[in-house]
């Protein structure tokens, strides 16, 4: 579903964001992406969703090249940023309708999906309120609904659980699993290693812009806890 090959991105001034990074997320997989702050997680994610241009390598989503056909690649992808800055002056529903319009979601489906996801995440009553009145967690929930509304094939999430209350976090994890069980895929970054350990089918660890470990959860951590392995590997690479 998502294939990254030899991705390299250098920022102006020479700072290496990502160096020669390759990984593959297959249909049905939840793929966790972990690393220290500044390791290159967000750079990789932003390159995948078309926010960052990159210097070398290829990224394909469902066989579509992100650089050659960005619109087609975006039409099967959804992105949830770490800090969802949404249109403050719109109501939650106006924002969701906008996203649904862009992805051409028919009226019947959008109504059903918006009401279902909003009820699941408990913001149905707030949909007619302006986004500016939302808390961080509510904005995050709105961004999550906007991502699910058009049933993408690939969901890219940057720290999706930040700001969510325990019930919403549980609901989102359930939604993620159901989403992948339908043959879609999720690529997400997180600092919460317990979540990654329980939720992910595969995992990749990045440090200094380079991939230092990747594979199934068993391949990467064996019998140890992910936390111990992460600390060991990143220390070794240091």
């Amino acid at each position: 579903m998502l294939k990254i090959e030899h991705l390299t991105k250098t920022y102006p001034g020479g700072k290496v964001g990502v160096a020669d990074l390759s990984l593959e997320v297959k249909p049905g997989e939840i793929y966790g992406f972990i690393g220290h702050n500044g390791a290159g997680k967000t750079t990789t994610i932003k390159a995948v969703v078309g926010l960052h241009k990159y210097d070398q390598g290829t990224i394909t989503i469902d066989g579509i090249s992100v650089s050659a056909d960005p619109l087609k690649a975006k039409s099967v992808t959804a992105y949830i940023p770490d800090n969802p800055e949404l249109y403050d002056n719109l109501t939650g529903l106006q924002f969701l309708n906008f996203v649904a319009d862009v992805f051409r979601v028919p009226k019947k489906e959008r109504k059903e999906r918006i009401e279902r996801y909003a009820a699941e995440l408990e913001i149905l009553d707030a949909l007619n309120n302006q986004v500016s009145s939302y808390s961080h967690g509510m904005k995050q929930k709105l961004a999550i609904i906007a991502a699910f509304i058009h049933e993408p094939k690939l969901l890219v999430m940057d720290e999706p659980f930040v700001g969510l209350d325990p019930k919403a976090a549980f609901s989102v994890k359930k939604m993620m699993r159901e989403f992948c069980d339908k043959g879609n895929a999720i690529f997400f970054s997180t600092h919460v290693l317990e979540v990654a350990e329980k939720l992910c089918d595969k995992i990749a660890i990045i440090k200094g812009g380079r991939l230092i470990a990747s594979g199934t959860m068993e391949e990467v951590k064996g019998d140890a806890s992910l936390e111990e392995v992460f600390l060991d590997i990143t220390e070794e690479a240091h």
């Binding site: 649904a100 051409r104 009226k107 959008r110 009553d125 007619n128 009145s133 808390s135």
Partner: peptide
């Protein structure tokens, strides 16, 4: 944050891109 208790009708109008 104050929940919207006005029970305003939710509109799901569609539009082209």
């Amino acid at each position: 944050y104050q929940a919207d208790n006005s029970k305003k009708a939710r509109s799901f109008k569609t539009a082209s891109v």
